[in-house]
Design a protein around this nucleic acid. Structure first.
Lengths: 245, 245
DNA sequence: GACGGCGTCAATGTATACACGAAGCTGCCG
DNA sequence: CGGCAGCTTCGTGTATACATTGACGCCGTC
């Protein structure tokens, strides 16, 4: 695989998993040493991450963007517009067999959620497959690209409510409703069920995130160890806020 | 200004203006010579254009993506989801003064459209300002980024119906309706008026584009002059279709 | 003591040299 | 005469050296 691709995947995964916390400073030389490639592929990776809105160029160095409470609301507003539309289109254009399979797997969600961490992973795999199936059924390249962009940011938020079993059980039920609407070919119901689901999800996310998640963990964590890159890191993201790319 | 930025702006403008037609092959060395910079900034520009979905990496060299009839429909599906939502949010959050000013200017649209090319430019400036005002009023960074992405592709399509005065006059009226709804704070009406506007716009666009606009003009036009880069250029875009980025 | 200007330095921006891979062409063999 | 194999060549991928910019801190002056 190309080095630039690997660098991008590595950094993106680390940001999404929270290994690189918001406020972390990513410098080209530093990262090129850490990842074992030259600056060129690192530059490419950082530019792509900027386009994704996961990092932001900030004067000197690029910093991992924070997700403020306000950002969560904004993201959900966009998600609702996109996913409701996608669900509606999927209901009109779906191949029933695809969603029938997902429906079967979704029925096992409650027992999966009782199984602990392993079950949790399998549950999220089902949800991801559902997202992919909707995106594929909607059969719209532009919409698909926009959806992947919001899913990127949603993944970061998901970590917050990951261990709220009560909510996850309810979410599984909402997903089932969406799948049933799509299987029934009812575009309006699929749209509205998605709207409901996202509303509940947002409510839960906001309840989970207390004051302001943006909270950078005091010191900026320069990824590599002994580098004294200690600067205050403003909570509000500078410049134009997150770019969905 | 940074060379990479200039290269990106130049290439993007040329693609949007149709100077670089769909199917044109953009090679790094070739472009670096033409633009008078080295390969590095050209690479950066091309990567950004790929992220924008304006070009696609295609085996040897990157080619300017074509817009198929199907792409137009897809784009309008996404536009409707995004812009209807944005108009609704703008109606809730707008500062009345901003839109009152645009409303005044929009009232002059019919006379502007009678003035020929110069008036046309001024008319499109008003429409662009309206888009910007809606985006600003919606006050949602994620939605804004998604909107800018679709506007990029819409600009390419707009060229097609640029000289249909009948349609432009009607569009001006539809825009006025949207502005009035926003001024009235009526989110639902603003949404639906946007839906209507885009529906009419799509209908017109599809009527204007006859068989398949993707039609690459026979030979791929290698931007620089005497280079015999003659390969057939497939009409359908390869790989994953346009990325909205 | 505070403000402004200048110098230093580090990190990014740019250029170029080198490496690798793929596609096309040519020549040989079946 | 056609197909395949090897070579050649062009183009992108990567690394590194050099240029430039902008930020930080120090010093001088008001």
């Amino acid at each position: 695989m190309r080095a630039g691709e690997r660098a991008y995947d590595t950094l993106r995964t680390e940001i999404l998993d929270g290994v690189l916390e918001p406020g972390s400073v990513l410098q080209e030389v530093e990262q090129s040493v850490r990842l074992g490639v030259s600056r060129t592929p690192v530059r490419e990776a950082l530019r792509r991450l900027i386009a994704d809105g996961l990092v932001a160029a900030s004067g000197r160095g690029t910093v991992v963007t924070a997700i403020s409470r306000n950002d969560i609301v904004s993201l959900y507003e966009l998600r609702e517009a996109l996913e409701a539309r996608a669900a509606g289109l999927a209901a009109q254009r779906r191949d029933a067999a695809d969603f029938a399979g997902i429906r079967e797997r979704l029925l096992e969600a409650p027992s999966l959620l009782a199984e602990g961490e392993a079950g949790l992973v399998r549950y999220f795999a089902i949800v991801d497959d559902l997202d992919d199936a909707i995106e594929a059924a909607a059969d719209n390249a532009f919409l698909g690209a926009a959806l992947r962009s919001v899913q990127l940011h949603s993944a970061r938020i998901r970590r917050l409510s990951r261990h709220n079993h009560e909510r996850l059980r309810a979410a599984a039920g909402e997903h089932l409703l969406i799948v049933d609407a799509i299987l029934a070919g009812d575009a309006e119901l699929a749209s509205h069920a998605t709207h409901v689901h996202l509303h509940m999800s947002l409510t839960n996310a906001l309840a989970t995130v207390p004051a302001d998640e943006a909270a950078p963990t005091a010191d900026p964590v320069p990824t590599a160890d002994p580098v004294p890159t200690a600067d205050p890191v403003p909570t509000a993201d500078p410049a134009g806020g997150p770019r969905v790319a």
